[in-house]
């Protein structure tokens, strides 16, 4: 058995099978991610990226195939159990935080996974650690630890969410377009923090993005999903040689082909 942090074998998931709306979101997908690798994930809407993330996170369960985390079969494990070793960041900064609790409390809750037992959830030793982590972001958040999370800006909140996701040093980090809803300045800042944290802790990471520049410049491997299959897997020299324009072309060719295919199916049904 492979001891890769993430190993996916023949993963298949369909929705509404046996009806006219039948959709095979993932079609016997295989994916091996070696330790510490940062992979960017591309794919049009409906290509299966989100389904892949939901299956890995345990929000959905597959029809066939297996998912291994550090060699352990987690295919049927409950979502909160596997969250001990993995974290996810979403596009919406509101999704990963408790708005009516303070920044410090949010971090303390996320840190529950690895924190030593203490009577009060917020304690001096952990807070000193959180302060140090926040100071490294260089966003002045270390002075706002008693501020309710809901009062922070989207960028601040997403940066804090990133800390929450990585504070317990997970084996796997999933990023689902986590900078897409931010203004360009904040997006750049959050992406920079992402790179730093992932590199420092050598966290195995999958990042969904629609930004061709990020897809090639961030991390060391780029994969493209189409109709639930892995259609492009770039790393090393091949990736270095790829340009955002050429990658976008790959993207659109497939989208056009699928669009044409969809039309022919529809007209066939009409006849």
């Amino acid at each position: 058995m492979s001891s890769s942090p993430l190993s996916i074998r023949g993963l298949t998931k369909g929705f509404e099978l046996g009806t006219v709306n039948e959709k095979l979101a993932l079609d016997h997908l295989d994916l091996e991610v070696p330790g510490g690798q940062f992979v960017t994930v591309l794919g049009a809407n409906g290509s299966g990226k989100s389904t892949l993330f939901n299956l890995v996170l345990g929000k959905l369960f597959p029809d066939a195939g297996k998912i291994f985390l550090n060699g352990e079969d987690i295919t049927r494990q409950k979502d909160y159990r596997r969250a001990l070793n993995m974290s996810c960041l979403y596009q919406n900064p509101l999704r990963g935080t408790a708005p009516n609790m303070t920044l410090e409390e949010n971090l303390a809750l996320a840190y529950t996974r690895k924190a030593s037992r203490s009577f009060f959830a917020v304690n001096r030793r952990d807070s000193a650690y959180f302060r140090e982590l926040l100071a490294r972001l260089d966003m002045g958040l270390e002075d706002r630890m008693k501020t309710k999370m809901g009062l922070l800006s989207g960028g601040q909140r997403q940066a804090a969410s990133l800390l929450m996701a990585t504070v317990a040093q997970p084996s796997l980090l999933l990023l689902d377009e986590h900078t897409a809803a931010l203004d360009p300045g904040s997006a750049e800042k959050v992406m920079e923090v992402t790179r730093t944290v992932v590199a420092r802790d050598r966290i195995t990471t999958l990042m969904i993005t629609h930004d061709m520049d990020y897809a090639l410049s961030v991390g060391e491997r780029t994969i493209l999903l189409d109709e639930g299959r892995l259609v492009l897997d770039l790393s090393g020299e091949a990736r270095a040689a790829m340009t955002p324009g050429a990658l976008a072309e790959q993207f659109y060719v497939r989208a056009r082909r699928r669009h044409a295919g969809g039309n022919s199916r529809e007209s066939g049904a009409a006849l």
Binding site: Y80, L84, R95, A98, N100, M101, E105, R113, S118
Partner: peptide, 24 residues
């Protein structure tokens, strides 16, 4: 303000966040 108490508060505030912090 204890860990279980804070987890209950967070459950009301954002249940998804609680689950993703590996709390049932």
């Amino acid at each position: 303000f204890t860990r279980p108490g804070m987890a209950i508060r967070a459950t009301g505030d954002n249940e998804e966040m609680v689950r993703s912090s590996s709390i049932n």
